[in-house]
Amino acid sequence: MTEERKPVTNIKTPMRLEFRYSAGEATSRFLRGIGQGKILGQRCPSCRKVYVPPRGSCPRCAVPTAEEVELSDKGTITTFAIVRVPSENIDVPLPFASVHVLLDGADIPFFSVVQECPVDEIRIGMRVEAVWVPKQELASTLASIRYFQPSGEPDVPFEKLAEHL
């Protein structure tokens, strides 16, 4: 006697593909700088703006950017979001502040997180500074910058930030 079989309606097919990414010249230089505790940007020869992390080109002017500029690891929060929902790929305790930091000397914000600060104190204009891993643990990876924390300096007024918002 044949058993009645249900039709197959679903299959699970695990996929696995391995990729070896290369950083590109600009990112490589940037990451090597991080490994030395430095944040390096690039200046566009045409519009003179400084990009960080640098990508080897200015998207606005569509030209290569070669001039390196060392930037401060202090900056100002231009905007932020308080994340309360767990997110794939992010390993930070909830809730956390996901922030845009305009590093001193840069012309575009750098994305990072703020810790060591209650989330309801995060504000636009707040001054922050990078917290690095201990010197002996520095490596060519953005994980060398653990997070940003308040620097204690007075806030930057909103009007001064307007163009970077």
Partner: peptide
């Protein structure tokens, strides 16, 4: 998550909320 970028932007919501 490619190893060369830091994953700090939490999906589309995390990108647009700011």
């Amino acid at each position: 998550k490619t190893p060369l970028q830091s994953a700090v932007v939490a999906g589309a919501g995390g990108y647009f909320a700011p």
